[in-house]
Amino acid sequence: MVKVKEQPVKSGETSQPLGLDIQLGRILYQCMHDRDMAASDLKAELTNLRTDKRHKAKLRVRAHPCTRRCSACPHPVFQALYPDKSVERLSGFSPQLRALGYHRNLQEITQYAQLIDFNESLARKIGALTNLASRRSFELFQDMQTYLDDTSLKAVLPTFYPPDPIGPAYLLGFSCLAFTVERCNELLRALQDHIYQYSSGTIHTRYHKTKQGVLGLKIEHEGRNPFIPADLRWAIYLRGHDRQWFSSRKAIFQNRYQDGAPPKIVLIRNTPWVLTRTGNRRHIPFYQAAQRHLRSISTFRSRIISLSNRLTKDATLILKCHRERGVQAPIKYLVVRQKPKTPEDAIQLITRNK
């Protein structure tokens, strides 16, 4: 079997979006190459079959594009053409061929048909997965841009726009998802800056300085996973002894009306109870509007995480299937039983049956 020489991927590239796209692209090219070679050999084998009256249908191989025009097009199909012009798709197993009246050279036909099915199935999975990831990333990117245009949040201009999934180019699913994740992180930073600008310009002490106890958003887990957006949590900002600001997700409240009561440790949340006891009662409408923005952005984040989990899971299964296939003994093409007349014919036979 003719195999495509795979270039080794450098260490550290497999965990990056482009490295994963390159790996899936190589597997796709390998599967398409092996599939087309097996389809060509199956056509040659069917051409050499002798006509027999017991044959109930004519065997053929046809290639046709799918409705989505995926990266694995065109797709070869092993079919049986009946005298009434009806077509049946065949799996290539011996009992199915014997039922159609074929009893010779079944091993070769079954071997080529199974090779076509395996590579076609893997190529379809890669094409459908990259198509889904690129299309969903494009839709999420557009929805976030529409949300930014409809609100007063100000984010930096994107450095990359995901490609339109309708086109002849090979789709880079992981790369498109990574750029969409980065755009979601920029949307989170825009909301964080919006709250900071309001707090520093409005919430002041009597000496026109920024008041302690303001609530803000703290970005967590940014950059830890290129396929998962960062997480935002509400925190309270205070000034320490060295006049440096620090954030805390917990606060200690003492009930002044109960003598001897132990202090209460409360997790900081954007609720009227917390806002009132941190001295931000006058700014409850602003924080409620910020909470609505955070809910909208969290919806985008949940959709991205769902797409990331599906893409990562399916890609892992594809890589595992390809790895297990490489462990198995490769299927060898049968040697054509003919004597070469020239050295060029001998070289072609050797190359064909490696």
Results as ranks from 00 to 15, higher is better:
173 G>N: 04
173 G>W: 04
174 F>K: 03
174 F>L: 02
175 S>R: 00
175 S>T: 13
179 F>S: 03
179 F>N: 05
179 F>C: 01
179 F>L: 01
179 F>D: 00
181 V>F: 00
181 V>C: 02
181 V>E: 04
182 E>D: 13
182 E>W: 03
183 R>T: 04
184 C>N: 04
186 E>C: 07
186 E>A: 14
187 L>Q: 03
187 L>T: 05
187 L>V: 02
188 L>C: 07
188 L>T: 05
189 R>F: 10
189 R>E: 15
190 A>N: 13
192 Q>T: 07
193 D>T: 10
193 D>H: 11
193 D>I: 09
194 H>I: 09
195 I>A: 14
196 Y>A: 01
197 Q>R: 07
198 Y>G: 04
199 S>P: 03
199 S>L: 06
200 S>I: 13
201 G>Y: 00
202 T>Y: 12
203 I>A: 08
204 H>K: 10
204 H>A: 06
204 H>F: 15
205 T>P: 04
205 T>Y: 05
205 T>I: 04
206 R>H: 10
207 Y>Q: 08
208 H>D: 08
208 H>R: 11
208 H>W: 02
209 K>M: 13
212 Q>D: 07
212 Q>T: 09
213 G>Q: 00
213 G>A: 03
215 L>K: 03
216 G>S: 13
216 G>L: 07
217 L>N: 13
219 I>K: 15
222 E>D: 13
222 E>I: 10
222 E>W: 12
222 E>Q: 13
222 E>H: 08
223 G>C: 13
224 R>E: 14
224 R>D: 15
224 R>P: 02
226 P>L: 09
226 P>M: 11
226 P>W: 03
227 F>V: 10
227 F>Q: 08
227 F>G: 14
228 I>R: 09
229 P>L: 00
229 P>W: 01
229 P>N: 00
230 A>V: 00
230 A>S: 08
231 D>N: 11
232 L>G: 15
232 L>C: 15
233 R>S: 14
233 R>W: 06
233 R>D: 09
234 W>G: 01
234 W>E: 14
236 I>S: 15
236 I>E: 15
236 I>R: 11
237 Y>A: 13
237 Y>E: 06
239 R>H: 07
243 R>D: 13
244 Q>V: 13
244 Q>H: 01
246 F>H: 03
248 S>A: 14
248 S>Y: 12
248 S>C: 11
249 R>W: 09
249 R>C: 15
250 K>A: 09
250 K>H: 10
251 A>V: 08
251 A>P: 04
252 I>E: 05
253 F>A: 14
253 F>K: 09
253 F>I: 13
254 Q>S: 15
254 Q>G: 01
254 Q>P: 07
255 N>V: 06
256 R>A: 12
256 R>Q: 15
257 Y>W: 06
257 Y>P: 04
258 Q>P: 04
258 Q>Y: 02
258 Q>D: 06
259 D>A: 11
259 D>N: 05
260 G>P: 02
260 G>D: 06
260 G>K: 01
262 P>H: 12
262 P>K: 11
262 P>E: 07
262 P>F: 03
262 P>G: 01
